[in-house]
Each structure stands twice: as C-alpha cells, then as structure tokens.
Design a protein around this nucleic acid. Structure first.
Lengths: 246, 246
DNA sequence: TGTCACGAAACTGGATCCAAGCCGAGTGAT
DNA sequence: ATCACTCGGCTTGGATCCAGTTTCGTGACA
C-alpha cells in the first residue's frame, strides 16, 4: 500500500493545505464523521489528524463539542508578523557569517525565480483583475523559498519551524482581502530581498538582521492596512451580532 | 468523574511534568501498554497524549516503533536560548509603553519573591550541597513568574506560548548538570531583572528590549559553559559507542 | 563456530463498539 | 405567555478488537 506515512499524516496534511489556502473557510466546523467518509478512513486517524491541526493552531477543539477552523483576527495576524520579524532577523544574522559561495548562488537562484514570478504577477494584475488565487499562492511560495534558503544556511531548525508556523497565520480570506495591496508589496519585497542578499554577501550579521526584520515588519504593516481597508468595506453593521466565537 | 478535562489531557499533562522535571529520563522509551496500566486507562487516550507530547517536541515518535523522550543536545539548547532571547525582547519592548502603576507593582512583587527565593537558595548552597532539586525547580518557577508578568502586560499570547515552549528545552539532567553555576546565575539574574524593571518604569521600549535580550543570552552562555564543563567531566571515552540516536 | 533464515512474540496503527456529554425540541407548570 | 425541566438524537471520548510490521531469538547450514 502507499506506506509513505500514516493515514493520520495524510489527512492532516491535506486538511492543513485546504485551511491555509482558504478552501475550508474560517469558522467551519469539522465533524469527525464527515471527514471520515470523505477520506474513506475510520474516525481514529481523523481524530489524530484533528489533534495535530489543533497543535498547529489551525483549529480549536472543545471537549465533546468538536473542532472548528480558527478565525484569525487582525490582532493575531499582527502578532504573527512581529514574531516572524524577530525570527527572520535571528536566522538571517546567524546565516551571515556562514555564507559560502554556493549558498550565495542558491540564494540568487531563489531570488531570480521570485523576481520572475513577481513580474508575471504584476503584468497579470495590470491587464485584468486577479481571479485565480493560485497565482498568488505560487508567488507566496517563491517568496518563502527565498527565506527558506536562509533558514537552511542558518541551521536553526526550530527557528525555521516556528517561522513557518507563523506564516500559516496569513491564510485564506486574508490573502484574498489583501490582494489590492499586492502590487505595492511586489516591488518592495524584491528590493528588500536584494538588500538582504547584499548584506549576507558582505558577511554583515547586524546589517542582515536589521534588514530582515524591517522586511517582515513592513510587509506586516502593509497587510494590516489592507485588511483594515477590506474590513471597512465589507464589515457588517455594528448592531448585527457577530459570528459567535465557538 | 472529574469532567474538568479529558483523560488524554490529564495523561499528557502529567507526563509533560515528569519529562521536564527529569523524573522520566531522556532517551526513555514510552510503551503505550505500560503507560496504560500505570494510569488505568486504555490505549486510545495514551496515544493521543503521546501525540500531544510529540507536538510539544518532548518526545519523538517513530512509525511502528513507539515514542522516545527526546535527548536535547546542547546545540538545541543553545537555539532555544536564542529564540527565547528574541521573544523576550519583543514582549518586553511591547510591554514598555503599556505599563501602568498597578503593573509595576505586580512586577515588583514578583521580583521581590524571586529575590527572596534566590537568597534562600544561595544560603542553602553555601551551607551544604544541593540535594533537593525541588528547591531549584521552585526558584526557576519564581524566575519565570517575573517574566510572565511582562508577557501578560505585553498582551502577546502567542509569543508567551512560544517562549514557554522554549523554556521546556532546559529540562531534567540539564538543570542538574548546571547546578554548579547556579550561584553565579543567581546574582546576575537579580540585577538584570531590576534593570529591566527600571527600563519598563521609564517607558523605554528600546532599552527594555536590549536588556531583556541580553538577560536571556547571558543566561544561555552561562548554561552552555556549565553543560560543556559537566559533559567534559562525565563524558565517556570517545571510542565507546555513544547512545544511538534512536 | 559464525552467519543467515525462518518464526513467534510484541508492539503500533486502524476499525469498530460502547458510554457519556451536549444541544434542542417539546411539554408542563407558574 | 414565559420559563424551566426532561427526554431523545447526535456527536465526541474511551475501550476493545483486528491486522500489519518490526524485532528478537532460535535453529540449521556453510
């Protein structure tokens, strides 16, 4: 059989992708029985998968009352960006004195691919609006790939894990709501990546640290502004009862 | 029955305490069946508990081969201190502009209690050696309590959670091996806490950030030195096969 | 005597069965 | 008419059962 891993792993991985990509909306309640018949497994691995998602912070589970996909507030999103900024700064500063020529080449390759996708996406946005969110997801992947090279060089596996977890806070609707500000983000990210690259090439740990930190923080500020804007447009009147928090 | 929580929660909480305190040594293999009969429950909640511990990073689970309590290397311990330094710095800088008079009073109370325990412990260490590790555990708790006040003021729940997780890397044997350096640590921690307190009282976010960061980093350096020393004393000859890494 | 192969025991992962808790509808009392 | 209580369905948590896999021990053969 496809013994690559356990069934609980498979289920958890797929559900995670669907939650992060927004295919499963925030606030959705996940019934064990329902997930069971969808994946053709029994409830045992489904329960394990849901627990793993809870550990990742993607769902909240209340005893005897099931699991619900977390609604990530703008406050939590802001905190996630703050955390990521510090962790990226740490990893980048640690990577600076370890850079080899080969590392630099890999970083350049990742940055080049990111720049390509950025150009594609900007063209796409100018010509029509952005109906296909998979393009954005792909672009975000290339963005992450650049930073992943740095993580690998820094050799701080736990930092890498935590930062990737923080990335997952920016999911689903957030991406869609922030799409209006993406064009601005594109140009800035590209420049900032190149600046970080230069600092790393120069072996300046402190320079790389400051640049990486500011890079993430500025992205966070932009996203926050975009989400506030989107919320102002689409928020229901204040007198309507808001979605009850589980 | 005491329906305050599920049995899996109970088992996980107890096992976590025992691993962190060192009652269950690193490298120990946890057999599901064995844990079952010890707690008088079936294997289902035990499996959930072990999975939760794996998510916390306290055990590693190998497919079809059980769960083993992680051996935390000095490299991982060093990384944990680096992470905690950044997170503490972040939380402390965020807390600085939010301090109220009441907050400051709570901080002083926590620091006072910490100073008391520190004095007790130093006396104890001078008079005889430190046979009872529970004193050290209590002292560490008071140390953490000081920082917990800051976390609460900073209102960054995720940062708090991650930092507490990083604390758990310093467990069991580490504490015991580092006991020789505790006296040195005591005096420094007290001074550094007071310095952080003053920066917070002055509302200096950047000052508090730098002090908090240096506070954790200096503790990390001291622990690292102590552990290297302990390892040099007790390490088996290099030609003996070391404990196989699971 | 050393090595390899076969087999049994034991352990984990998955499925199914049972009990206990939450929620809502319906009914009766005030 | 409204509030409170109870009863029943539905869902989750826990226990037990079954299958697949790993490991260890024993025995046979080179």
């Amino acid at each position: 059989m496809p013994g690559l891993s356990t069934k609980a792993d498979e289920v958890a991985r797929i559900l995670e992708d669907e939650i992060v990509s927004g295919a499963i909306p925030q606030g959705q309640v996940l019934r064990q029985e329902h997930v069971c018949e969808r994946f053709g497994v029994s409830r045992t691995p489904v329960r394990e998968a849901l627990q793993r998602l809870e550990a990742l912070g993607l769902v909240t589970a209340l005893p005897n009352r099931g699991a619900r996909v977390r609604s990530i507030s703008t406050a939590e999103l802001r905190e996630a960006f703050l955390i990521r900024a510090e962790l990226e700064a740490l990893a980048t500063s640690q990577a600076a004195p370890r850079m080899t020529a080969e590392d630099l080449a890999r970083l350049d390759a990742a940055e080049e691919r990111f720049a390509e996708l950025t150009l594609d996406l900007r063209r796409q946005m100018r010509s029509g609006d952005l109906r296909d969110s998979s393009l954005v997801v792909g672009w975000m992947g290339a963005n992450h790939a650049f930073h992943d090279v740095i993580y690998e060089i820094a050799a701080l596996p736990r930092v890498e894990q935590l930062a990737k977890s923080a990335r997952r806070s920016f999911i689903g609707e957030h991406v869609w709501n922030a799409r209006g500000e993406l064009d601005e983000l594109f140009a800035r990210n590209d420049m900032q990546h190149r600046a970080i690259r230069e600092a790393l090439a120069a072996g300046s740990a402190e320079g790389a640290r400051v640049l990486a930190r500011e890079h993430v923080l500025s992205s966070g500020r932009l996203m926050e502004a975009a989400l506030d804007l989107a919320a102002a447009k689409t928020r229901p009147p204040d007198w309507l009862p808001s979605e009850q928090p589980i």
